[in-house]
């Protein structure tokens, strides 16, 4: 049965953090609402606690270049990311997945912070952000002053629906370091529809080509393990080799070996592995072609 004992819409970060500190693990943060409202109004209504609507908190929306990083506010919606000129120019792989995210109605609501905090193994935004070496900023109160810590996405995700976020903490921003010059990345969300699909698997790859050889290789996989993750084995396979068919095949083989997908109603583990192979092979060649 639903029981929201308290509702608040704080108008400053400090106020929001005070509320989170006060309610601890009973606090329910409302951002885009696309996952939370399901649990309030959906078939399995089971949510209790204190609802903290952070939408009025200033400074949590938008993409800015700060020094050598891009800072993306946690409340930036997928639609805003999809249309943002900075994202389009400097993080095209992120813009691309935003175009393949759920539906217009959901893109208008869902936020980058919510997508990550929800920590679905198939979270659409996770794979491009892993490729971009993104880090998350987590704010909390120290005394009565906000302080922030930063974690890599890899450290942030702990399991399906589980993150390193502690009681009293709020994800405020995603920080993306400027990719190395010449870095190109692509990703593929497997499915039959342009967007309105839960990812069966998603596969991302990015690298620079230097003197005909791959450098700074990054490979990320979604829905192949309890969390979205980077695939160091495949990265190692790519590093220092030419972006040709043999390399693509070898990297795909490494990724398949590293993947630990499950069988569920959407696909078998076999098919998920198969798609990792097919898409990684294709995407390595694509990125290599430039």
């Amino acid at each position: 049965m639903v029981r929201i004992e308290c509702y608040s819409a704080p108008t400053s970060l400090r106020e929001a953090l005070q509320l989170l500190a006060k309610y601890g693990d009973r606090a329910r943060v409302l951002a885009g609402g696309t996952d939370l409202v399901l649990r309030l109004e959906g078939v399995d209504r089971d949510l209790e606690g204190a609802l903290v609507n952070i939408k009025q908190v200033p400074g949590l929306v938008g993409v800015r270049a700060v020094d050598d990083v891009y800072r993306i506010g946690a409340l930036t919606t997928v639609t805003e990311l999809r249309e943002d000129p900075v994202v389009a120019e400097h993080m095209p792989v992120l813009a691309d997945i935003c175009d393949h995210f759920a539906s217009g109605q959901i893109r208008n609501a869902a936020t980058i912070g919510g997508n990550l905090v929800n920590a679905s193994p198939a979270a659409d935004l996770a794979v491009p952000l892993l490729l971009l070496d993104a880090r998350v900023r987590l704010a909390s109160l120290e005394g009565d002053q906000p302080r922030e810590r930063e974690l890599s996405l890899g450290d942030f995700f702990r399991g399906p629906g589980v993150t390193a976020l502690e009681a009293g903490e709020l994800l405020t921003a995603v920080v993306v370091p400027r990719p190395p010059p010449g870095f190109r990345a692509r990703m593929r969300k497997a499915g039959t529809r342009p967007a309105m699909d839960i990812s069966i698997v998603s596969v991302g790859v990015g690298f620079c080509v230097d003197g005909g050889l791959i450098r700074d290789a990054r490979v990320a996989l979604g829905a192949t393990a309890p969390t979205p993750l980077r695939c160091p084995a495949a990265e190692k396979t790519l590093e220092g080799r030419p972006p040709d068919a043999a390399t693509a095949r070898a990297a795909a083989q490494s990724a398949v070996e590293a993947a630990r997908p499950i069988d569920d109603v959407r696909a078998s583990a076999w098919y998920r592995r198969h798609l990792v192979r097919v898409h990684l092979e294709r995407e390595v060649l694509h990125v290599g072609r430039g």
């Binding site: 039959t192 529809r193 309105m196 839960i198 109603v265 959407r266």
Partner: peptide, 11 residues
């Protein structure tokens, strides 16, 4: 509808 897929407009 997430897992029982009827045709959508782009299909």
């Amino acid at each position: 509808f997430r897992d029982y897929k009827i045709m959508t407009a782009p299909d």
